[in-house]
Write a protein that binds this DNA or RNA. Structure first.
Lengths: 200, 200
DNA sequence: AAATGATGTTAGTGCTTACTTACTCTAGCA
DNA sequence: TGCTAGAGTAAGTAAGCACTAACATCATTT
């Protein structure tokens, strides 16, 4: 019986092991032997599930897509205070990055392998967040006149950029190093700067 | 005669070719054969100059260090208007990143090979910029009372983070794609948000 | 009880890689 | 003119890689 419970469990173990090893050592540095070992199966089993290493890699990238980050959140956010809304967005955004840190690391270091695929994933994720945030800003500028007249696209990039670069440096590069940055304080400091910087 | 003109020219060609190829394909993906070919010399010549591929890699990382980015700039900046100062800092910071984009890409994707070395380089560069910027903020908060009472360390990270993530996404990830972001506008929008966000 | 589907074990193939050996060529300097 | 430093050419080595072939084991299903 194709796709039995056992088979798809093995499959998942291989995808997990592949994701972790490739994110740690890169596509070339993660050998099929090691991936199989990490998954707790024989190397041959890897090839029985994925006919080549490259195919395994593509399925890893495909299967671990991003959940929609903020898209449906816009109505909910509109009900909040500006400050609470920004804090919530920062929170959700960082959580999504953490959840997918292995995949993001792969995208950053192996993007020359499948540039267009990586770009698609990126657009789905970050692009969606940009849009949501930008249209939130536009709303607060227009009907309510609460925010000053900055470009909402650039504003969204500025806001998310602060958090993305924090994530990039501390989570992707120096995860294990003790860096004395307290994330709660970081969020409020960043949000405060941004609030003052964008309000009328 | 060791270190003749010819020899050190060849050496430099190899370092340059290695930097470019490794930044493009990764350490494992850039073969000694291809590096030599790109440098326009025989593969054997590579091994006569650097006894192993790993040693070549280490010398690449060592030789292409960052120039001090802002360190000596503090006195000069203090004479400027706040807005002009921030624009200048953004400018210099982005220029340094552009100058060293190949090395930064290598640091990001191969940092698992020599984490401590990469960390040192990072500290020398970004760390120095943080300090300079943070002490500039502290100055404007204290003696002149011009800026409000935000944490200067976090402020520096927020400011540089906006620009680093722009660089990271557009220069490291999607260099070749047409992305309709105009850098001049980006700088002024970001700086404006930050100015309003930090002034008393 | 027999068939089947999923995995394991072992031994291998052909290819590529970093790196070596041995020898030749050439330009510049003593 | 001859020596030498630096580079080239060609052939090869040992190891590691993705991937395969042949056969065995075992649980589940029929």
């Amino acid at each position: 019986m194709r796709n039995s419970v056992k088979a798809s469990a093995t499959r998942k173990k291989l995808l997990d092991a592949g994701l972790k090893l490739i994110s740690k050592r890169g596509y070339l540095g993660a050998t099929t032997k090691d991936i199989a070992k990490k998954a707790g199966v024989a190397e041959l089993t890897l090839f029985r599930h994925f006919s080549s290493k490259e195919l395994l890699f593509q399925e890893i990238i495909n299967s671990y897509t991003f959940l929609p980050a903020l898209k449906g959140l816009l109505p909910e956010i509109k009900e909040l205070e500006y400050r609470e809304a920004l804090l919530m967005i920062a929170d959700k955004f960082l959580s999504r990055l953490y959840e997918r840190r292995d995949l993001i690391r792969i995208m950053q270091s192996e993007m020359h392998l499948y540039p267009s695929k990586v770009k698609d994933i990126y657009q789905d994720f970050i692009g969606g967040v940009y849009q949501t945030l930008a249209s939130y800003f536009r709303e607060l500028q227009g009907s309510r006149g609460m925010l000053r007249d900055f470009d909402p696209e650039y504003g969204a990039r500025a806001f998310l950029g602060m958090f993305f670069s924090y994530f990039s440096v501390h989570e992707l590069m120096f995860r294990k190093d003790a860096m004395p940055l307290e994330e709660g304080k970081l969020k409020t400091e960043y949000v405060d700067i941004f609030i003052k910087g964008t309000m009328r």
